[in-house]
Amino acid sequence: MARSDSIYQEDTIPTPLRHIWLNFISYPVAMLGLWVFIGFLVITLIAPYIAPYPPGLQHPDALLFPPSWHDDGQVSYFLGTDDLGRDILSNLLHGVRTTFGSSLIVTIFAAFIGILLGILSGMSRGLKSSILNHILDATLAIPSLLLAIVLVAISGQTMINVMIAVGIALVPQFVRATHTAVHHELSREYVVAAKLDGANKFQIFYNVILPNVLNALIVQFTLAISIAIIDIATLGFLRIGAPASTSEWGTMLADGVDLIFIAPWNVTFPGMAIFASVLAVNFIGYGLQRAVKEGLG
């Protein structure tokens, strides 16, 4: 038996977050999601260096090449080309940036604003809280796609505006999730106890409430990423999102639909990219949810 330096048996209790993490990594599906997610994240950062061609570069001599493993395919266009001779692989890799990368950024901003508003409203009571609730109810009732369409119509069709629109459409969901979680916590006994101890609002929030609502927020965050990806791609697909000729997955898919008879790979691959990224995020979300639940239980 190995000798331990310490005579006492060390029994470290993992922090709640660490506990969740330990739970999380025990689900293979969640880990698969995480790895795919990290893969996409890496591609987002290095896309220009690994993509064989710059975005949107047309090869007039290589129209509608099928993927390389096909008889007529060429290895230099690994996943084939579209009707303007643009390399699909390159476009998909750059699309990781436009679709996946922007979704991340959008979600981070939306989360920041939404959570802040949610905390403010959650911590307050009475009229203020109730007014905010009605605004929320009204915004949440508007289908997010319609909201984004209106916002893009107001601000003009550029990628930045699409991101802003999708972000704004996400905010209410964050506010709602935070509000509910915080509000729920406020009535707990330990919060009351902290209050009786004379803690001020900020202390109560930071020390007592935040650790308990963090889980819910993380889950909401992953959910929001998948919604953002789908929303950006949907807007692109309907051609009211990213401007034409942007390497955006939804836009690529919309272009591909016109070629569905002769070049189905133009539909298959962008769709798979969207699907894979959303699935990865959802796997992570599922893993987190389960980890949180088991962590508590």
Partner: peptide, 18 residues
């Protein structure tokens, strides 16, 4: 259900048409 939930509805529709 997770897989189904992750399929973008427009892709699903287009593939179904195809």
């Amino acid at each position: 259900s997770l897989i189904g939930y992750s399929i973008p509805v427009f892709w699903l529709g287009v593939i179904a048409i195809m």
